[in-house]
Nucleic acid binder design. Structure first.
Length: 432
RNA sequence: GCCGCGGUAGUAUAGCCCGGCCUAGUAUGCGGGCCUGUCGAGCCCGUGACCCGGGUUCAAAUCCCGGCCGCGGCGCCA
């Protein structure tokens, strides 16, 4: 017997009387004695199978051996019946059990009893069979495709930079050490330096790949391993790449709203409507607004989460840029402003209090890079292999990086980045 | 790392403040029974739990101390 001839989504009233083979998981069983119902789940949805004790005594016996989440193929006839969900169901002739699930399940997949996120992550594969979980990852996939399409449309090429690196790319964040053939190596915290160099070869590049931070961060918005969407663009400044970013976001949201109607309904969530251009607030004006709201904050300070919560309430914006950050708040490769080098050509994209993306015009002049490295307390010598290429015509360039998980929170309404990460890695979690 | 809250059957919860009426309640699951149209099926019977260690007390799920774990808020962090 073939595994399957039709997905649940391919069965309709038009197939009435036809023999089909469906395949999937046993989602629910309902036993009414003479009539027994199986709800079969596949990647697209659900379909009901009905067994009559009188007419199918052998299958009625088999029914008792079927456990929830077992995988089966069922050969049967499509039958129209007003009493069935959607008006049709399958009358089986044969049921093949491919893999019998142990009972009871460590997690209720059918959604009758909720489970804590901790339990769900422990039982993640079962959890990922739930409608909500599958909706999250469908939405993320649709968004990723839209992001790629928009960047390709604008003449970017997709690249992969090395993830095992010899030294810290930019100082600051702690790195995970790796044993590399007897030498010291690290997992990349960011593709930053490599993507800048690639802008010096391909002009427009992007990368969607994991990055690692060995930070103590323990919040619903940080992970030790996360997917970063990075781009870098030659002959561009931060205004140009901000425009690319807001268009990428716009396209992704549009695609999700158009293609994920079912998923958004499952999640009972509607992503924000986006009107371009997004508002740009100057860093100094944000500080001023916060001071007026009574916060003890001064120019030069980073803007913390409580302050950002306050700020988006005050300005009544959900999605906005904060631009022209002070030099001390941004990394060494960030270009200082020409009119005032205390500030930089830089931006954060915020959704409410959450920093989705950050970017800047980059420094493409070697002497200035060395000066900035020293100001940050970093040793230019350890960046020798990065710096030397700046002797050979690195163009002016700009770029940004966006955290996929954080973006996914905006797209899905999830409250914890672990929800939208298949197998999250955080301070405490290394398995599964 | 700091602050707050929490840890009770497979899962989710009640009980804890005010120690004994707890033989630890409920839902769901699981096992069994009844039931020919369920769609959170229903009804009956059964099954299964107080995070670990120490202390207070005649008596601890309940109070105290320590540990471990979780969630949230911060911090750290391109």
């Amino acid at each position: 017997m073939k595994y399957r001839t039709h997905l649940s989504s391919e069965i309709s009233e038009a197939l009435a009387g036809r023999e089909v083979i469906i395949a999937g998981w046993i989602h629910l069983k309902r036993d009414l004695g003479g009539k027994k119902f199986l709800i079969i789940r596949d990647k697209d949805g659900y379909i009901q199978v009905v067994i009559s004790r009188k007419e199918q005594p052998k299958l009625a016996e088999l029914f008792y051996e079927l456990t929830p989440e077992s995988t089966v193929s069922i050969r049967g006839t499509v039958k129209l019946d007003k009493r069935a969900p959607n008006g049709y169901e399958i009358v089986p002739a044969e049921i093949i059990v491919h893999s019998r699930a142990k009972a009871p399940l460590p997690l209720d997949v059918s959604g009758k009893v909720p489970a804590d996120i901790d339990t769900r992550l422990r039982e993640r594969v079962l959890d990922l069979r739930r409608d909500e979980s599958r909706a999250y990852f469908k939405i993320i996939s649709v968004a990723l495709r839209a992001i790629r399409e928009e960047l390709y449309r604008r003449g970017f090429i997709e690249i992969f930079t090395p993830k095992i690196i010899a030294t810290a790319t930019e100082g600051g964040a702690a790195l995970f050490p790796v044993a590399y053939f007897g030498r010291e190596a690290y997992l990349a915290q960011s593709p930053q330096l490599y993507k800048e160099l690639m802008a010096g070869a391909f002009e427009r590049v992007f990368e969607i790949a994991p990055a690692w931070r060995a930070e103590e961060s323990d919040t619903p918005y940080h992970l030790a391993e996360f997917i970063s969407i990075d781009m870098e663009m030659a002959f561009a400044d931060y205004n140009t790449v901000m425009e690319v970013l807001e268009n990428v976001v716009y396209r992704a949201v549009k695609a999700v709203k158009e293609e994920c109607v079912k998923e958004l309904k499952i999640l009972n969530y509607e992503p924000p409507d986006i009107r371009l251009p997004l508002k740009r607030f100057k860093y100094v004006d944000v500080i001023k607004a916060l001071q007026e709201a009574g916060h003890n904050i001064k120019v030069g300070d980073d803007i913390g989460t409580p302050e950002l919560r306050e700020f988006c309430k005050v300005v009544k914006e959900d999605l906005f840029f904060i631009v022209d950050w002070p030099s001390e708040a941004k990394p060494f490769y960030t270009m200082p402003r020409k009119d005032n080098e205390m500030f930089t050509e830089s931006f954060d994209l915020n959704w409410r209090f959450l920093e989705l993306a950050s970017g800047s015009t980059r420094v493409h002049i070697k002497d200035l890079l060395i000066k900035r490295l020293k100001e940050k307390g970093l040793n230019p010598e350890s960046f020798r292999y990065f710096l030397k290429w700046f002797d050979y015509g690195i163009p002016p360039h700009a770029g940004w990086g966006m955290g996929l998980g954080r973006f996914a929170l905006m797209l899905t309404g999830a409250r914890n980045i672990r929800e939208v990460t298949l197998f999250p890695r955080d301070k405490k979690r290394l398995k599964p």
